[in-house]
Computed example of a mutant assay.
Amino acid sequence: MLDLIEGLPHGWDSIVFKGYERGVQLSGGQWQKLGTARALYRGAPVVLVDEPTSALDPHAEIAAFDGLWSLARTGHAVVLVTHRLAATMNADHIYVLDQGRVVEDGTHAQLMSHEDGLYRGMFTAQAAQYGHVPAAETLPHPRSAVPSDHEEAR
C-alpha cells in the first residue's frame, strides 16, 4: 500500500479523483487496495466487503485475504460477499444465496458434505478450472431453466 501512495504524483497529498486540479484516477485494483487499507486503519468492529479482490492479481488477492482473516482473528467481524469460493474456506460460517434467498449455511466442510448441495456444486466447478477435480464427469451440470430442489422447496 505504501508503494501505491508514494507512487502517486503528489504522494500522500494526492487527490484520488479525476476532474480536480492535480486529481488522479486509480485503477480498480488500486481502489480495492485503498478501501481495504481504510478499513484496516479505522479498526472498525465490523468490516463488510463485497468482492474485495475482483480487480487484483493473484498475489495481491492472497495478501488482501490474509489481511481480512487477520482482522477476523483479532475479534473483528468480517462479512465477505463473494463468488470466489476459495476465499470462503476460512470463514467461520457461510451463507449460500440463490435467487435472493438463503438456501444453505454452515462451514465449508459441512457444505461440502452435501452431495447435491449448491455450494458444493459451485465450489467443485471453480476448483475444476484449476484441475482439482478427478474427472470431467464429476463436474456438476450448469443450472438449467428447470427449478432446482432449493427452488421447489420454497
Rank of each mutant, 00 (worst) to 15 (best):
D105V: 14
L80Q: 02
V16C: 14
Y119E: 01
R101M: 14
T88G: 03
A128W: 02
S54D: 06
V81A: 04
V78Q: 00
H108I: 09
A128P: 02
L4Y: 03
A127D: 01
A153C: 11
H83R: 04
E6H: 15
G35K: 03
E61Y: 10
P9M: 05
Q32G: 01
R84C: 06
V102L: 05
R154N: 06
V49H: 09
L80I: 13
D92W: 05
T88H: 02
T36R: 00
T36H: 01
L139A: 12
P142D: 13
P58I: 11
P140D: 10
H83T: 11
R38T: 12
H59T: 11
Y41G: 10
T82A: 00
I5W: 04
A145N: 14
L111W: 05
L8D: 01
V133A: 06
I94H: 01
D57R: 07
H150T: 11
Y95P: 00
T124S: 01
Y119N: 05
Q99E: 07
I94V: 13
L97G: 08
D105R: 12
G75C: 11
D149K: 06
D149S: 11
Y20L: 15
M1P: 10
L71I: 11
V46H: 04
G28T: 14
P140F: 08
V133D: 01
S113N: 10
G75Y: 09
A109T: 15
V49W: 09
A37N: 04
H132G: 08
A109V: 15
H114K: 15
K18E: 13
G23L: 04
S54G: 08
G131A: 02
G23E: 07
A44T: 12
R120V: 09
G67P: 09
L34F: 10
A63W: 00
V79K: 05
D50F: 15
L118M: 10
E152P: 02
H59N: 07
E6P: 14
Y41K: 12
Q126K: 09
G28N: 09
L8A: 04
A153R: 09
G67E: 09
G121C: 02
F17T: 15
S70Q: 05
M112S: 10
G43F: 06
E61K: 12
T74W: 04
L48I: 15
L56D: 00
G7K: 09
